[in-house]
Design a protein around this nucleic acid. Sequence first.
DNA 1: CTTAAACGGGTTTTT
DNA 2: CCCGTTTAAG
Length: 792
Amino acid sequence: MNQPDNSPNSQDDLAHQPSSGSLSARARAAVAPQLAYLSGLNPEQRAAVEATEGPVLVLAGAGTGKTRVLTTRIAHLIATGRAWPSQILAVTFTNKAAREMRERIGRAIGEVAEGMQWLGTFHSIGTKILRRHAELVGLRSDFTILGTDDQLRLMKQVIEAEGIDEKRWPARQLAGLIDAWKNRGLGPDQVAAGEAGAFANGKGGRLYRAYQERLKVLNAVDFGDLLLECLRLWREHPDILEQYQDRFRYMLVDEYQDTNVAQYLWLRLLAQKRKNLCCVGDDDQSIYGWRGAEVDNILRFEHDFPGAIVIRLERNYRSTGHILSAASVLIAKNQGRLGKTLRTEDELGEKVTITGAWDSEDEARLIGEEIEALHAKKHPLSEIAILVRISAQMREIEDRLVQLGVPYRVIGGPRFYERAEIRDALAYLRVVNQPADDLAFERIVNVPKRGLGDATIQVLHNHARAARVPMMEAARFIVETDELKPKPRATLRDLLISFGRWSKLSETMSQSEVAQIVLEESGYTDMWQKEKSADAAGRLENLKELVRSMEEFPDLQSFLEHVSLVMEANESDTSERVSLMTLHAAKGLEFDTVFLPGWEEGLFPNQRALDESGRAGLEEERRLAHVGITRAKRRAKIYFASNRRIHGLWNSTVPSRFVDDLPEANVEIVEAPANFSYGGGYGGGSRFDRMQPFSGSSYQTPGWQRAQAHRASTEDGGSSARRSRDRRGPMMIEGELVAKSTGSSGFTVGGRVLHSKFGPGTIEAVDGNKLTVEFDKAGRKMVLDSFVEALG
DNA sequence: CTTAAACGGGTTTTT
DNA sequence: CCCGTTTAAG
């Protein structure tokens, strides 16, 4: 399977391939206009679907039905016989987007979507291609995909090996540079000497090359390589490139404004021959420039692909008039854009509100109050979002929501496979699977702590390097010598024996069984069980989920790939909660009501973006503002504070210039209620109005943990009796939300309960539907009875 | 080798 | 202020 099978009788293609000119194809095309999937489209959307041949750029403004066009276009290509599902390349940026697209195509045309094996992210498709031709780029087909932490460790080693002071030239910085180079499609030999010289007194280029060499030795790639190595493969092997060019009769790209140079080159190579490339994007929503995305790719499309058709989708189906108009006027201030005018046939609706707050605490309070008010009017919490510029803004807001007892969820944050426990577990499996995986070995050799610290690792390193063998092998040698003190020597020997045993097990047992055993016997699960911190229970839960999901994969190899590339935390939680996230994380989402706090100079537009990228930076910030406003369907609420704490110090701030960019006709200035809090922390109600949150996963959030910590420290001062007596406004919310759960619970002090996150525990106190439970693993918590079940 | 205290640095983060 | 990381003491 080293070649893309393009032959008529291959497994993935059906036997008969109609060419676009064949009778059957034309006959099927003739019935297309009556096909149901076309009927609901507006004229522009329909044009975008039906312009199948040649390069097409679809400029799809926010809320104009971009995904719909994309999926319908694919359905159309298949239904009219222009291509088999396996001949269509459809690229997205996120796995989520890929999944959604697959679902929607399936809904449009049935199970044929299953045949779309080339629908995925740039990275997953790149991986698939690379595995088939790995040996041509100096890899084996079972290469490992490194995560950020592995990369960093590797770079540290490379820097050290070159005799460079890691303090002065941190690995992080090198990682950033190399990442940027890879984003621009530059290999070690193509980086301009001057640019590479900026790091470590001219050694940047050498370090890059050394890093790449180390990757090859380890049979590993990083994310950037998944694209870069494809480029190299195709350039060095034109025959293989041509196979793919022929295979992909039609290519579609989502979020084209976010492509970087490497991705652009990747697409251009593939599209060169047939030129059936359809890119969908919105230059006004390009917000990843700092990560290498080139707005230029979309601005230059017509130039790069001569004869391209450009179709604009300008009818917005999401927002009401005032919101859309405010967003349009704002974004029109940008110079570098292709220009679109969004319009809606919806009513004007509510104006965009702008509210000035005294300080950031006050701002959080105001938002909290509005959410309470909305909720009292039966506005679903799941249709409310708070979008911040930087994560640091979340803290105060979270604290306030916790105080009010408003359930919320934080979107974004570390991905499932980025979490320490997942990466640790995977490292164990990687070593079992491939003992030569030094990075993985190094990661877990002393996790859990078993007394094999830096000194021991250093010895292993030296030997491994001198003998040019993997560390595992070096370790085998060293335990036979007296180079190590007796204790670490014995520990290391035990560990080696264990790994030998596990490797043997994996020959006969299923991987989930092996994983289970490895995690148990290595003491890894124990480590978290002993840990009493609030998130230990969650981590164990994640590990369980990991083992569970392994069962679905045929072998460890495909599982490891799935985890490093695709797997993400269960975010299928549709419960009633407010969403809190950064503006970046909000792209592609929509909510009835959107709160936009922190519109202040310095914060938004962010000073650093301005300093580093000048006008381009400002324009990207403005696009971010545009993205923020256009997330709102019916209500957009902008806030700014006159004082904000930055790095612990209070600074006075001025409203964002973006506020002044908004058209007066579409905005309304809201006077903040008079109960300002002048920094004293008493604003908006008693400090005793805090209460327990009542939602499952907010327990994991930092805000809740902080509230817990605070509660513990004030336990003596404000007794719980006092707290509940003094609760005011928030009670209402609680009363309503809690009404669902059993008022008079059957729980009694001393009873045993099971909580989905915290595990088993003993009830210490019962207060209405609130239980105080001493959990065996997670310590004492207050929980609502509806979140636990009685045991035994 | 492990733990606790000092230190420094602090946008955004699809893969 | 709050975090992760490095350093000095057990």
